[in-house]
Design a protein around this nucleic acid. Structure first.
Length: 438
DNA sequence: CATAATGATTATGT
DNA sequence: ACATAATCATTATG
């Protein structure tokens, strides 16, 4: 620390034009008279003000000189005090900045898109693995899918490396600045608060850069996604087998055509497997859900249009399911126009309608379990078979055979089906019920 | 080529 | 999370 003289000597010019300082350096008695002190401070301030005019060497020398001045500690303390006060007063201005909503949006999206979240399967290896894993079922679809995944993971990788880079740069810069400030705090009043503020400023700058990264990543993902979705939107019709399977299920569960998760899985598998070799099918659970959603709504919307189909499938399943109970085939009694309406879904709610009897019959309600469901489906198919046998093969007549909405108190899975006022209910509903209840 | 059929997506509600 | 309703976009059909 005491290299003052050496410096002064080695740089002879250092003190040129400022003899006062040199004088003070060696003069231990300068502070005794007030005048001298004032002069002193004036000198020092002057030198500080003009320090930037000097060459680097000069400035360096001057700095050291000032640093060692005996007034320095006192002055420094005063400055520090003032600084502390001002900083304290400033502090209130910008407390906690609210989290940027847009940044949140971006973050959420990246997370949702699987870019930002935890490594879900990993990089390109995952895509390959995925392709291999799902290769058995629906080769073409999974090809698209794995392509999408591969690109997504590419984006993800870039995003992460960039983010890491930024993070690292930010940390480096922060520590650098902090070191600088710490070092400077020996010669210049710097409060910890100030350092903190500086750090937060740096972080903000870097986070704005990060935001740009996030934004462009989001854009890339959006583009990729839209392309993929567009590709997915190119629908391929299910093959016949698949639709038959689905229709079978639908019409044999007409009263409650809501397949459970497992049922959907099952159906998807069935439809997919029967066809996978032919490389057409590949029904995912989602596809099944879509199918049932569409089916329900379209069925409900125009029941008469689906009568034929309904009868067909009902008959088919009935043959399988109820072949044992042969007596049920009272087919050759077309005389009874099977009033019981019914075809369209009745409501499962236990609001004591006519069908309660059926439900109470099979234990307790549809929720009961397999047995109940089975019986219920049998009831459906039976009803269909009855109505169908009552009617005839095709032609519009069939559609008028029974009024779809029938009893349907307060919307089972449908509120108000088409009024279909055309029907001619005639007979009382008793017959069918008695039959099924048996 | 117009139109129906159909699978997928979106908006909205629960 | 799932259901519905509306809608979009593609495919099948006459």
């Amino acid at each position: 620390m005491d290299e003052q003289p050496r410096l002064m000597h080695s740089h002879g010019v250092g003190m040129a034009g400022h003899p006062g300082l040199a004088q003070h350096m060696q003069d231990g008695t300068a502070g005794t008279d007030g005048e001298g002190r004032k002069q002193d401070i004036g000198d020092i301030l002057q030198q500080i003000m003009t320090i930037t005019d000097q060459s680097l060497d000069e400035a360096q020398a001057r700095k050291h000189a000032l640093n060692c001045h005996r007034m320095k500690p006192a002055l420094f303390n005063v400055l520090c005090e003032i600084k502390e006060k001002t900083v304290l007063s400033i502090r209130g201005a910008q407390e906690e900045e609210p989290p940027d909503p847009q940044l949140m949006r971006l973050d959420n999206m990246l997370l949702a898109e699987g870019v930002a979240g935890p490594e879900k399967g990993g990089g390109s290896a995952a895509a390959a693995a995925a392709a291999a894993a799902t290769g058995g079922i629906g080769a073409d679809n999974s090809a698209e899918h794995s392509d999408y995944r591969a690109k997504l993971s590419q984006i993800r990788q870039i995003y992460h490396t960039e983010l890491e880079k930024y993070e690292q740069a930010c940390n480096e810069f922060t520590t650098h600045v902090m070191n600088l400030l710490r070092e400077q705090s020996r010669t210049r009043p710097i409060s910890p608060k100030e350092i903190e503020r500086m750090v937060s400023i740096i972080h903000r700058k870097f986070s704005s850069i990060q935001m740009q990264l996030k934004q462009s990543t989001c854009e890339a993902v959006m583009i990729l996604r839209s392309r993929f979705l567009d590709a997915r939107r190119k629908r391929r019709n299910f093959n016949k087998q698949a639709t038959e399977i689905l229709n079978e299920y639908f019409y044999s569960h007409l009263s409650n055509p809501y397949p459970s998760e497992e049922a959907k899985e099952e159906l998807a598998k069935k439809c997919g497997i029967t066809v996978s070799q032919v490389r057409l099918g590949f029904l995912t659970k989602l596809s099944v859900s879509n199918w049932f959603g569409n089916k329900r709504i379209r069925y409900k919307k125009n029941i008469s249009k689906f009568q034929e189909e309904a009868n067909m499938y009902a008959a088919r399943t009935a043959v399988n399911a109820t072949s044992v109970s042969a007596h049920g085939s009272q087919a050759n009694s077309p005389s009874t126009p099977n009033s019981a309406g019914s075809a369209g879904s009745f409501n499962m709610s236990n609001s004591g309608d006519l069908f309660m009897s059926v439900q109470s019959l099979n234990g307790d309600s549809y929720q009961g379990g397999q047995v109940g469901a089975n019986i219920q489906s049998q009831v459906d198919t039976l009803r269909h078979v009855i109505s169908q046998t009552g009617g005839y093969s095709d032609s519009l007549a069939a559609s008028q055979m029974y009024s779809p909405q029938g009893i349907n108190t307060n919307g089972g899975w449908q509120d108000a089906p088409t009024p279909s006022s055309v029907t001619s209910p005639t007979e009382g509903p008793g017959s069918v019920h008695s039959d099924t209840s048996n």
